[in-house]
Structures are given as C-alpha cells and as structure tokens.
Design a protein around this nucleic acid. Structure first.
Lengths: 273, 273
DNA sequence: TATTATTACGTTAGGCGTAAAGATT
DNA sequence: AATCTTTACGCCTAACGTAATAATA
C-alpha cells in the first residue's frame, strides 16, 4: 500500500536527482531514502527505477509514477483543505448588510453570544442579500425594507437618520433652518466616506448636482472633517473616534429615504436572533 | 500527514457504524481503530467526530472527510493501476493482422525471441492496421499490400493461397477441373470459420449467390468438416488438428484476390523484425 | 579521491494487542 | 448484563541512523 510520506521522498528524489541530495533536503539519512524507494517500488509492484552500483534513476514507468505521486499528494492536500474550509464555514457567521451602521452594534453582540464563532461581514446590495439569505450563502442579512418570504424570519433591528453637517457660517445655516431636504443641499460638494453601502447610491441619486470627495479610510475622513469647511454626513448611529469640528451644525434630512429602518433577516432555522 | 491505511479504517468505521464491528471486519483490535480515528482527526486538524462515553460517530465535517477519504483512496488505486498498465504496455508486443494465418507462425517466433514480453494480437481491417502502426497504437502490422510510408519499415512475410475442398462426388470435381475461380463455386453454400479476417469479406463479395454457415469455434468447424459434404475452404497455411475428410478434393482458386502475399509493417525504430 | 547507493547492524520509538476501566442502553 | 469506546501497559516489530561496503566518475 502506498504511503504518502514515502511518496514525498520519491518526489524529492526526483527533484534533487540523487538520494543524497534529497536526504539532505529532507533532513533524513540516505538509507532511509533507499528504503522508501524500495517500498514505493514494491507498492507499485513494477520496476520504476534503473540502477547501477552507485546510481539510481527513474525509468519511463517511474516518470509516470512520479506524475501519479504528485497528483496523489495534491489531492491529499486538497482533501485536507476542503475539510478544514468546511469546518471553518460551520464556525463562521456570515453577515451581509446594505449599510455599515447596524454592524457596529450587531457584530459585538453576536460575537459575545457566540464566542466560538468567527464573524465575517460584507456590504452588499439588497437584492443579493435577500437571495443569499434564502439560498444559505449568508447566515444573516440586514436590509431596509420589510419582506415576506417562506422560511425566512425578519425582525426590526434599528433606525438610522441622516443629517448633514455644515459650518455655522454656511448659507443654509444662516437661513435659520432646523432641517433640510436633499433638494436644499443639492449642488453643494460634500465629503463622503467610502464603504457606506446604499447611502452612496442614494446621495448620487438625490444630489446629482453635487460632487463627492470620497475618503477610503476612516482616519483621513475624520482628519478632513476637522480641518475643512466642506459639508459632510452623519447619522444618529455614527460615533466618531474624536469629536468632529465642534462648531458644525447637524441638520436632519427629512426625505423619507434618509430615514431608514433596518431589518434583520435569516432562515427560519437560524438561531442567531 | 494523512495515512492511507488509516483512511481505510476510517471508511470501514463509517460503513460498519461502530469501531467494534469495523475492527472485527478488518481483523484488528478495537484500540487500534480508536488510535486510527484519533490520528485521522489530528491529520485533518478539525473535529470530525462526535463522542459520548461509549459511542463515536461522524459529525457533518466528518461526513465530508469521509467523501474525501474515499476520493483519495480511489485516486491512489487509480495511480497504481495506471502505472502498472503502462508497465505492462511496455512489456507487450501488440500485433494487428488482417488475417489469422500469419500469426500462427509469427507469434511463436516472436515470443521465442522476446521471452520477457507478452504478445497480444487482433484481427483488424487494413486501413486501421496502417494507421495504428504509424501512430504507435500497435507494434506490428500484417497486411496484404506493399505500402511506402515515411518512418515505416515493411517486409514480405509469407504467402497464402486459398483452395476450396469438395467431396469427390461433387459436380465440379466430376468435371475433372484441377483449379477453379470464385465464379465457378459461386452459388454453392459453404462452411466458413469465423475470425478469418479479410477472407470473410472476400467470400461475401466474390460469391454473392452462396450462403455461408459460420462456425465460431474451431472444434465445431473441424467436426462439421468431417461429417458433412459441404464445401469448405483451406489454404496452404492451414494445419488441421485432425486430418479432415480424407476423400475431399482441394481445388486451388486462381483469382488473384485468393492468392495473397503478407507484409509485416512496423515503425522504423522497431526491433521486432 | 570524492560521491553515491546499498547492506549490515544496533538502538529505539512507536504500533499493536491484551487487559482494564468507565459508561451507556 | 452486554456492548462499546478509551486508557493503560507491555511486548515486539519495524523504522531510523550510524557505520561499513562497494562501485563509479
């Protein structure tokens, strides 16, 4: 019967050309390799080596055996990887959300309740979230509308309300308004964080006359927020690492699209909520 | 590192449900199986079993591991079969002939000259023989025409001359003819051996008015030859196990198609002739 | 002479089976 | 009580490394 360890020796021999070099590389003795080669030849039960008194090399059959050895070790590696990946997937709670804010509270709660599980999250559009939740490609979904679907449970999770932050001397603030619409602020260029899910699409759609300065990392964003007078967005769920420009005035945006309710969805059989 | 022997144990356990039963089937002790399962679990490095104090069973990951174990053992088996088959093919002289007679002398000579080789032969139509010889699917070919082909050597091997055997009181014999044409004998039903290569096609073509009583095995054929008065064919190369009906008269068939020369063909690099 | 494969040989680690323990049905 | 898994333990095989051998380039 073939032995995977010996097959590794076999491959090493084929790579390094002599038993001596292979033995050195494998940190084992030469006689051990001699025996491995003999055992492999016995397992295949056909001659795979040519030998002279102090030289050994592969014959044509041996070259084929080498291919097979490589294939076999590869599939062995694959097998282990597949099993480990599956195990990991069983130990992972996947979350797909249409916006980041709900994750800020959800992930800590989940990891607290399920200390043995690891958690992965991804920002995804709502159609895909629903589809993936139904087909089991994600354990949890977070969306902004109520749905009714066979085998899917749904729960209200939280609300998020968008505001725009403006410097005190901004024309809109000067008017004394306490709340605004997208229409009011359309045309003003704004700072915008990336990785904000559906909010980005919404801004593009509702403020076609504005340009947005996208900041990829949080740090740059917060730095800019403190050092410029550009408008930027915040919500009731946002907590900044450091307080933003104190003087800024946050005006709620009253469009319905700027005030969303998040819903958790999962398979009926799920026990994560 | 996975061990194929232990994977067999693993599969046996999965098949028989308990370590005890598997141990019994494998003719090893139960503790050995316990250890095998532990080693496999260590090799995969993820939990694949559920255990109670006196019960052990596969979890979901284990079921996947089982699939992988089966796959791995299958490919190991395959590998060995592939290597052995290749070795065997290196030790085999393949012959494709358009007729059986040349093989009767060729095979003994070849196996005498190449005692370590085994020989396989097959009756095949000439087009395929030529094609297979060129592409290396056969080591030797036997055909009835001279060909010129790059990289192919060709040698005259022997001749075969067809005769028809008739009972003494047969009308054709009564005419005193010493030789015949296919036309002369067309219409008479004849005994015909199967496995005679191109001869069969020739008979059908040249004697469309005759019907042929095909005999699959040699013994039946020779029995019939001795006990009936039906015409049958013979050639200069045919040697019957027992003498046929003594009184039968063999009349040579003079058509050119009934008198063939066999040629051996092989790759130029071949050393079999 | 240096390199290399193989054989010989002594030691040791590890694998197997028996026996025992612990637990379940 | 019977069945089953796991642990403990002792034996013994077999695998490994060292050293020696033999041959080649």
């Amino acid at each position: 019967m073939l032995n995977l360890e010996e097959l590794k020796h076999f491959i090493a021999f084929a790579e390094y050309g002599t038993l001596s070099k292979a033995a050195e590389q494998l940190h084992i003795s030469q006689p051990t390799l001699t025996r491995s080669m003999q055992n492999i030849e016995m397992a295949f039960d056909v001659p795979i080596f040519e030998r002279s008194k102090n030289r050994i090399w592969l014959n044509d059959t041996g070259k084929l055996a080498l291919e097979q050895a490589r294939r076999l070790l590869d599939t062995a590696d694959d097998s282990i990887k597949i099993v480990r990946a599956y195990h990991k997937s069983l130990k992972t709670i996947r979350i797909e959300s249409c916006a980041p804010a709900p994750l800020w509270t959800l992930i800590p709660v989940l990891s607290d309740k399920n200390p043995s599980m690891s958690i992965t999250s991804e920002l995804v559009d709502m159609e895909k979230i629903i589809k993936d939740t139904i087909c089991g490609d994600t354990e949890l979904g977070i969306i902004t509308k109520e749905i009714k679907e066979e085998g899917i449970r749904i729960n209200k999770y939280c609300e998020e309300h968008l505001s725009i932050c403006l410097p005190p001397d901004h024309p809109i603030v000067q008017t004394g308004k306490k709340e605004v619409t997208f229409e009011d602020i359309n045309g003003y260029n704004c700072l915008l964080r990336s990785e904000i899910g559906f909010w980005a699409e919404l801004c593009y759609e509702k403020m076609p006359a504005s340009r947005f300065l996208i900041q990829k990392d949080n740090f740059s964003f917060e730095e800019l927020v403190r050092s410029t007078t550009l408008p930027y967005f915040t919500t009731n769920l946002v907590r900044y690492a450091q307080e933003p420009m104190k003087a800024a005035v946050a005006l709620p945006i009253i469009d319905t699209e700027a005030n969303v309710t998040y819903y958790l969805i999962a398979k009926q059989t799920s026990h994560y909520f």
